[in-house]
Write a protein that binds this DNA or RNA. Structure first.
Lengths: 128, 128
DNA sequence: CGGTATCCATTCTGATACTG
DNA sequence: CAGTATCAGAATGGATACCG
């Protein structure tokens, strides 16, 4: 006889497996600019140039590349308004908004614990 | 006359500023292996080899490098037991445990929304 | 077992120039 | 304004060999 157990989280996806698609997705989300872009888009749509000015130090190339990936994943939506010059807005999709709290928590954690991390680094570097 | 306003979150740290230390910290946390290492250490201490077997596809070099960074930041603690051969355990510090829910949420999000992301990608790739 | 050091191919990224 | 194309230099990461 066979017994079937109902599991509360029946996800077959396992990022610990190198070949699971979630491994690659996690990798993509763990990108230098993803967190900042998503947090920046949290309050509402922004144009390319506005994003670039908000996220100091990002190059146009990297910003575009990051936005393209997020658009492809369905996390960000790109809207083109035909005008002269053309206007392009980026905003979070519902999927993107579901990710927002997560990346925002990451940013907030970094801000909240920066001091602790810095003093830990000093201690670490001192004893070498 | 000067009025002082008490702010609930008086963090002067701003990761949108390229020179803020949180920018670099966020960058470090957004590393390919950090999330997996922390999630793996969630349940309890693990040896180097155990971690390597758990996180399929990570090279010894990358695992060591990731662990060193996390140790330096005070997120992971490294314990050496003198024996033959030597035994090295890694475990989350209290600071690291405070970060756990965040990275776990990221991993869980990836698992929960992998299907949506994949179908979005197919749609995106189809219209090019 | 855990770790370091070295070598080397690959990838990444910023700068620059150019298009619609 | 938004974006693409190109190219050279930097950073990355894997493989390998070796140490305590």
């Amino acid at each position: 006889m066979t017994t079937t157990v109902t599991c509360p989280t029946p996800t077959p996806f396992d990022p610990f497996d190198a070949n699971c698609p979630t491994r690659q997705l996690l990798d993509e989300l763990s990108d230098k600019w993803v967190c900042l872009v998503l947090v920046a888009l949290g309050p509402g749509p922004l144009r390319h140039g506005e994003l670039k000015r908000r996220i100091l130090g990002v190059s146009q190339k990297m910003l575009t590349q990051t936005l393209r990936n997020l658009e492809r994943d369905g996390i960000v939506e790109r809207t083109i308004t035909a005008s002269v010059p053309v206007r392009v807005d980026y905003e979070l999709t519902p999927l993107g908004r579901s990710l927002m709290p997560v990346v925002d928590a990451l940013k907030t954690w970094a801000q909240a614990h920066m001091d602790e991390v810095e003093s830990s680094r000093e201690r670490y570097d001192a004893r070498v």
